[in-house]
Write a protein that binds this DNA or RNA. Structure first.
Lengths: 238, 238
DNA sequence: CCAGTTTGAGTAAAGGTGACCTTAACTATT
DNA sequence: AATAGTTAAGGTCACCTTTACTCAAACTGG
């Protein structure tokens, strides 16, 4: 029953901040064509004001009172980038007192996957850009480098045991496309035959009747995800 | 710089709450003798004041300004129970606006493992008790039932691929003891021979020169964890 | 019509897992 | 003193999964 009357107000140097404030940060993963292949990219926005003005940062912001965390993440995702994420999962909560020089601000980090080739961003006034995960800016605002590193680690892990790769593809896809997603995320080549057998046995994809014609090779069959909207295997509702 | 001046208030009883407040909750797992075996138990404290007065709840409380999240979890763990956890890992952040009837309070949940047989608690004034995970109170305060369910799910998953089981045992232990920890957590019998082979091959334990004498059977060798203080495989520093 | 590509299917070796058997070493009982 | 009962510790075998590799099918472009 520790109840403080003074609400957190732009605390930091001021003596008024009794409790940490809270916000969300979203690591948005996408797939971008690169040569005859693709690369894994993340979306960063340029900070306009202090602290870290001019540096690139993860999209995010405040959590309103009465607003759920995932709801807040979706809101910032949409208003800052115009993107709809098909997949959104809580990552970790970063709460080091010195991660924001102004005040003790806790960030609940999420990561999102957006399907297709998200080249055009419906951005607002903010400058936003996709960065290859292999060529990130040297310095990012706050502890965003650490958040990103963790998100990448989690995605690479998760792709090994959960059906999360579809979320980066359009509704229908060939097995080659799906395999390429895995290859890009894991950063290594996979055997086409073994990959096919594994994913077919897992029952997570369903063959379509249509094929892709026009290639200089045998026309591949199109597949779709067996159960659309696959969410995290255990989703706390709160 | 999404600094909304008009903050949604309606923050519980206090009129000043523009943003959600933040706290930590800790799921503390222990091992308790039961018959000639053991059972997995969690520590709950009785709430003295509203809301949910009289109900059992997870230990926890506020995060101070300038205090790290894990630091806060350790503090509440120690002051409310007198226990030192050998293992502490962030679980999930629960932020549903209606999880606390008074105000929007976000809870960063941790789970902890305490070694040995933690029968005696150095509790303060609060009433605290160990509950078997098989016989929890019907109703818990807040969304603590959900947090607990998730913690148990995570522990059961984690024990399959990470070396966390040692954390519930004293420094030296026999393979039978270690196996029993797995059996209790997973709630099923394991083949002693196959378990031995697997854990020996994993290289996570080191044989000691000593054995346990006095049993009505061949004296078992004592082992210890290969790398003590095994922390989460990826530990964000922030 | 042939070269080149990817699709899609199959096969054999290697490694891990689960079920089961056997011996070792000690205590308690007869 | 012998024996039954217990768990420790080591081994084997069948089965499944993974990995590496081979090969035919189907299409396009020259």
């Amino acid at each position: 029953m520790v109840q403080s009357v003074s609400a957190p107000k732009a605390a930091g140097t001021t003596g008024g901040g009794a409790w940490p404030t809270i916000g969300v940060s979203v690591v948005i993963f996408g797939l971008r064509p690169r040569g005859d292949s693709h690369e894994l990219v993340v979306l960063l926005v340029r900070r306009e004001s202090a602290p870290f003005a001019g540096l690139w940062a993860l999209p995010g912001g405040w959590v309103h009172n009465g607003e759920g965390l995932e709801e807040a993440a979706r809101r910032h995702l949409l208003t800052k980038t115009g993107l709809h994420a098909t997949y959104l999962e809580q990552l970790y909560t970063f709460g080091s007192p010195d991660r924001d020089p102004r005040e003790h601000r806790i960030a609940v980090a999420y990561y999102a996957l957006v399907p297709g080739d998200p080249v055009g961003l419906a951005i607002g006034k903010r400058e936003a850009r996709w960065f290859s995960v292999e060529a990130l800016p040297k310095r990012l605002a706050f502890d965003n480098h650490e958040i990103l590193r963790y998100a990448l680690w989690r995605l690479r892990n998760k792709v090994g045991y959960a059906d999360v790769a579809f979320q980066l593809l359009p509704k229908n896809f060939t097995l080659s496309q799906l395999r390429e997603v895995y290859e890009v995320i894991l950063n290594r080549k996979l055997d086409p035959t073994n990959f096919r057998r594994k994913v077919e046995a897992s029952g997570t994809i369903v063959p379509t009747s249509s094929r892709v014609e026009g290639g200089a090779h045998r026309p591949p069959r199109l597949y779709r995800c067996a159960r659309r909207r696959s969410q995290p295997e255990f989703t706390p509702r709160s």
